[in-house]
């Protein structure tokens, strides 16, 4: 079953590692991602103000477009997932709002579209077993801490993605890829999010906690599905290291990069170049990628 795929603004540009590798992986798994014909920016920030319809209109527009192409909409970026899913929840429960939308867009929101994350897509439509069968490279030497962040999990009643405290889908995914997943107490805590634009200290504190505890529990790298988390976790390390000598830098992977490695997809140099903490020495040291190949 093929469902429309919503890449979102960031993935079409900056987060190539997330997007291109997802597409390549999905092709190998026989569940190619078909980009939604007409998609709009999710607005990158869900307005919790439920009566603030203006901030919900663009996602609604995307949902209407998606409904024409399938029952589900596959989303990879955590922020987009969060915004689209919450907006779809509001639309599903609020008839009043649907009317207003109709008056405004002159297009009706009728068919509810189920917003699913890429991880759910792989689990439910491909199956982690099949993912495992397709693994070509042994990456069992990698000890990776999955980092969920906020936007996949909370508010849990609305998103219903996984257990809000002990989620496991990421671990199952990594397990299928064959690498060791490391549990850490801050895997579901905030990375600092958009505060990166002004409160460096707040973000650094958050990132420090996430990475330090992942390291303490034996992780050598972390992985995310969120471009913003990825950015914070990756960029903030330099400043943290400046302030604290003992801090250990740690590569931050997109989950699809790890998937690409395991499935034997050749990861382009540009993708690795996007990283701040270069993962290539780490991968080379582990024998996953030959130093010369990079």
């Amino acid at each position: 079953m093929q469902y429309p795929y919503f890449p979102g603004c960031t993935l079409t540009n900056k987060a190539k590692g997330l997007n291109d590798m997802a597409k390549a992986g999905a092709d190998i798994l026989g569940a190619p991602l078909k980009e939604l014909e007409n998609w709009y920016c999710c607005q990158a920030n869900f307005s919790s103000v439920t009566d603030n319809l203006m901030n919900h209109l663009a996602p609604v527009r995307t949902l209407i477009a998606a409904a024409k192409e399938g029952q589900k909409l596959v989303v990879l970026c955590s922020t987009c997932y969060y915004v689209l899913k919450r907006v779809s929840a509001i639309m599903a429960r609020d008839e009043e709002k649907r009317k207003v939308v109709y008056e405004f867009l002159e297009e009706e929101y009728t068919k509810p579209v189920e917003v699913v994350h890429f991880l759910e897509y792989v689990r439910d439509e491909v199956g982690f077993d099949k993912l495992k069968e397709n693994v070509k490279m042994d990456i069992s030497v990698l000890a990776i801490a999955p980092y969920y962040g906020c936007q996949l999990l909370r508010p849990s009643k609305e998103l219903a993605f996984d257990d809000p405290f002990e989620p496991s889908i990421f671990e199952e995914f990594l397990g299928a890829l064959g690498c060791e997943s490391v549990d850490s107490p801050f895997k579901t805590e905030c990375c600092g999010s958009f505060l990166t634009t002004f409160s460096e200290k707040g973000v650094e504190d958050c990132v420090d906690r996430v990475l330090t505890y992942a390291g303490k529990n034996g992780a050598e790298a972390v992985t995310t599905s969120c471009p913003l988390c990825n950015f914070n976790l990756d960029w903030a390390q330099k400043e943290i290291k400046n302030k604290n000598e003992k801090f250990n830098n740690m590569p931050v992977f997109y989950l699809t990069e790890l998937m690409a490695l395991a499935l034997g997809i050749e990861v382009p140099v540009e993708v690795w170049d996007e990283h701040v903490v270069d993962p290539r020495p780490f991968l080379a040291e582990k024998g996953i990628v030959k130093r010369t190949a990079l």
Binding site: T12, N13, K14, A15, T196, F231, W235
Partner: peptide
């Protein structure tokens, strides 16, 4: 970090 953030959004916004 701010410069980084700018870069991030730069990519995002292309």
């Amino acid at each position: 970090l701010f410069l980084g953030a700018k870069m991030f959004f730069k990519g995002k916004l292309a």
